[in-house]
Amino acid sequence: MREITLGQYYPVRSVIHSLDPRAKLVLMIAYIVMIFFVDTFVGYGLVLLFLLLVIFLSKVPLGKVLKSLKMILFLVIFTVVMSVLFYNGNENDLLWGWGIIRIYSQGLINAGKMALRLIFLVLGPTILTFTTTPVQLTDALESLLKPLSYIKVPVHSLAMVMSIALRLIPTLVEETDKIQNAQKARCADFETGNIFKRAKAMLPVLIPLFVSSFRRADELADAMDSRCYRGAKGRTRMKKMHFRLRDAVSLLIFALFFFVILWLRYNFFPAFFDLSLLTWLV
């Protein structure tokens, strides 16, 4: 059987893992908002320190976290190259010019900040998925969106759909394998030819998979009905999410950190401590 990892959850016990998934979800969203307020290298340095601390606490190996940056590597390089090439600065800022290619030092700085912003944006959700199972995330989402159910948004049903989808992924992957093997045994060719040919070869796999998913859905619905399922009505949960002191503390720490970031940007107390005097703060 093929090994299937759902998401990229890293199963260890740590402070970060044990936080209430709702708190983590809120923190992640706040973190993303915060990144857009950072505009100095000092700010990015602070965020980096903060992230390193969180990663250390989560006991997830740093290498694993950095690996997840691979998928945005191309995007980062593309962004950097483009913003360097198309930056229009003034001529005494010019570093190097050849034909129409002109590279300005300010352009390099901007590109660097843009790259950092992208990288930090990805790292937040990455740490969340390393420390929280998909099911926890679904439950957290259901709990947080609960107020919407008062305006008739089917929050419970949506969350149930999501968690069943997660539950069925390994089953469907296994079934795809089976169908593919059955067709290979009858000389179907999935490996050679260009991408269109291979996509076409997948069609006879997808159709039986599609049909059987409907049959599965039907049987699962019967099984759920038989076990007294009637939607959110009167339903309780065995595992309740608990908002504990540690969650409150981490929210508080993050709020403080967010405040520091905002201070760096807006220089709140010029009379008390004027940040604009620190000229190295670019």
Partner: peptide, 26 residues
């Protein structure tokens, strides 16, 4: 088919599905 009657990704959560539906305390 045992695969088509499992609701949750963790065994104890799956067994809990019925009692949860009838609204028992956790």
């Amino acid at each position: 088919n045992p695969d088509n009657q499992m609701v949750a990704t963790i065994i104890e959560d799956d067994v809990a599905f019925g009692p949860e539906n009838i609204g028992m305390p956790s």
